[in-house]
C-alpha cells in the first residue's frame, strides 16, 4: 500500500533548481533510500516533505492528505517524523528529556492544566517518561538517559534523535544521514535499530552516503542528481545503473565511513 506519494515536487532558490520535478512513492512497511551526490537536493526534498520548507510546485500526499502548506508541527501530528543532517538536539536537556519532548506531538495538555498540576497533565508526563525510557532501551542506549545532550558522543546523539522522532509515534520516519560521523560499530548498531524500527511497522525513508548501509537496509532506492530523479529501483538494479554510476563518478564519490 502506498503510504506517501511525492508528485512533481520542485524547489528553486533564485536561479538554482535544488529539487527538480521529483516524483516517487513510498510503500508501507518498506525502507526507501534517497541517495545522490552532495548538493543533489536530498535535504531540500526532506524539508519540503516535512513542512520545514514549501516547494514551489508539486504535491506530497500522505494517506490521502495533502501535506504541502502544512506547518512542521502539523506534519508530525499526521505521522511523519524526521531527524536532521545536523542533529538538532536540545543541548541542555538530558537524552531522556530530549526524547520526552518527542511525545509532545501526540499530547494535548497545555499551560493551564500544567499550571494547576491537574492529574491528567501529570499522567501525561509519566507516560512520556515511560515512553522515553522504553525507546532508549529499544535502541539500546538507556545508560545515557540522564546525560545532557551536550555531553553525548556523536553516535549516541544520532540515536537519541531517532528515539526522539520515534516518540512522536510516527507511521513514517525520515532520517537525514543518520550514519554521518558514526564509527563502524556504531553504524552496525544503527543498522540493527533500523531493522527493529521497520519490523515494528514503521516505514522509513533514509538519506545516506554510506552505500554499504544503503544497500543493506533499503528495499528501494531513489537517486537524485542536481535536483532531478535519475533512477529508481531495488538496490541491485541501482548499483548497475549507468546513469547512477556516471553521476557518482562525475561528481566525487563520497564515502565518509
Amino acid at each position: 500500500m502506498t503510504l506517501l506519494q511525492v508528485r512533481n515536487v520542485t524547489r528553486r532558490f533564485g536561479g538554482l533548481t535544488a529539487v527538480d520535478d521529483v516524483s516517487f512513492d513510498v510503500y508501507e512497511g518498506t525502507v526507501k533510500a534517497l541517495i545522490g551526490p552532495n548538493g543533489a537536493g536530498k535535504s531540500t526534498l526532506f524539508n519540503a516533505l516535512t513542512g520545514f520548507d514549501r516547494p514551489d510546485e508539486g504535491s506530497v500526499v500522505f494517506e490521502g492528505e495533502e501535506l504541502v502548506g502544512r506547518k512542521p508541527r502539523e506534519v508530525v501530528r499526521v505521522g511523519l517524523a524526521r531527524t536532521f543532517q545536523n542533529t538538532q538536539l536540545f543541548e541542555e536537556m538530558t537524552a531522556g528529556e530530549n526524547v520526552m519532548v518527542g511525545s509532545q506531538a501526540r499530547q494535548r495538555r497545555g499551560f493551564t492544566t500544567a499550571m494547576l498540576r491537574l492529574p491528567n497533565a501529570v499522567a501525561e508526563d509519566r507516560e512520556a517518561r515511560e515512553d522515553a525510557s522504553r525507546l532508549l532501551r529499544l535502541i539500546g542506549i538507556e545508560e545515557w538517559i540522564d546525560v545532557p545532550a551536550a555531553d553525548l558522543p556523536a553516535g549516541i546523539r544520532r540515536l537519541v534523535e531517532i528515539a526522539r522522532a520515534l516518540a512522536t509515534r510516527p507511521r513514517l520516519l525520515l532520517l537525514d544521514e543518520p550514519a554521518a560521523g558514526l564509527n563502524a560499530t556504531e553504524t552496525r548498531e544503527l543498522v540493527q535499530t533500523l531493522f527493529r524500527v521497520r519490523d515494528s511497522g514503521i516505514t522509513v525513508v533514509i538519506v545516506e552516503h554510506d552505500m554499504g548501509l544503503v544497500m543493506e537496509v533499503s528495499d528501494e532506492i531513489v537517486v537524485l542528481d542536481r535536483g532531478a530523479k535519475i533512477a529508481e529501483g531495488p538496490p541491485r538494479m541501482i548499483q548497475k545503473d549507468p546513469a547512477v554510476i556516471a553521476a557518482y563518478l562525475g561528481g566525487e564519490v563520497d564515502d565518509d565511513v
Binding site: 536532521f84 538536539l89 541542555e92 520526552m100 500544567a114 534523535e161 522522532a165
Partner: peptide, 21 residues
C-alpha cells in the same frame, strides 16, 4: 511538566522543537 520541556526545547533548537510537534 510538558510546557516547561517545550520551553527548554525552544531554547535548545527551534528546528528540533518543531520536529517534535
Amino acid at each position: 511538566l510538558r510546557p516547561g520541556r517545550a520551553m527548554r526545547a525552544l531554547h535548545g533548537s527551534e528546528l528540533g522543537a518543531q520536529a517534535c510537534g
